[in-house]
Amino acid sequence: MNPLVVLERLGGAVLRALALVGRLTIFAARTFSHFLRPPFYPREFAQALLSIGWLSLPVVGLTAIFTGGALALQIYSGGARFNAEAVVPQIVAIGMVRELGPVLVGLMIAARVTSSIAAEIATMKVTEQIDALVTLSTNPMKYLVAPRVLAALVTVPLLVGVGDIIGIGGGYVVAVKNLGFNSAAYLQNTVDFLEMRDVISSLVKGAVFGVIAATMGCFYGMQSGRGAQGVGRATKDSVEAAAILILAANFVLTGVFFSI
């Protein structure tokens, strides 16, 4: 193939990627600006709180409890190789709170919430409901996007907190019931080992991941193409983008919190 053609295609792809980043940045900035400017839609915000926060609790709880349990088993068997079985409570606590809690909750929210927001908004766009909102003097950014992103900002840190506790609980149950740990000593070790920085990093990650998940759902939903294929593509793209950005943001935030 002609090297100029390769270069042209590469350049085109880079320009498209940069344009996407630009559109996304403007979209996010406009969303944040609507947090502060009336009119506000409290009913839509309350519905988003319920759907993103409360209704995500079962999937978050189940993910966390099984992960915490598996983590305890892995650390016990791995630690046994150099007589370090006793570190199970500490490693479960630090692993859940610093990394697995926020990341797994973030990915679960990307799967459950991002996809649902993108599919709903994309369908609204395809069926002219977004145009109908505008003709009814309602700004879709204020009515559809801002309440969802704000609700994710508020609820996902709480979900991460709950996920951390349930995950540690899963590790505790496995350690006490299956691995012969003393209940009181396990809890004491967990509490003693965790630092405030661990908890804060977990909650901050939750807030950032929540904003990423909801913003990606709204952005790709609003950008959707026509028809069922457009809705399907918007949903797929939103989940992919949310998952990748959550993992990338996790890497950056871990660096910010723990390499200083």
Partner: peptide, 20 residues
């Protein structure tokens, strides 16, 4: 003023565009 402008209009969309 966009709001005042749009308040003068009503529109029936092809597919209804009702909010599900």
């Amino acid at each position: 003023d966009r709001d005042a402008f749009l308040a003068r209009f009503g529109m029936l969309f092809q597919g209804g565009a009702l909010f599900d």
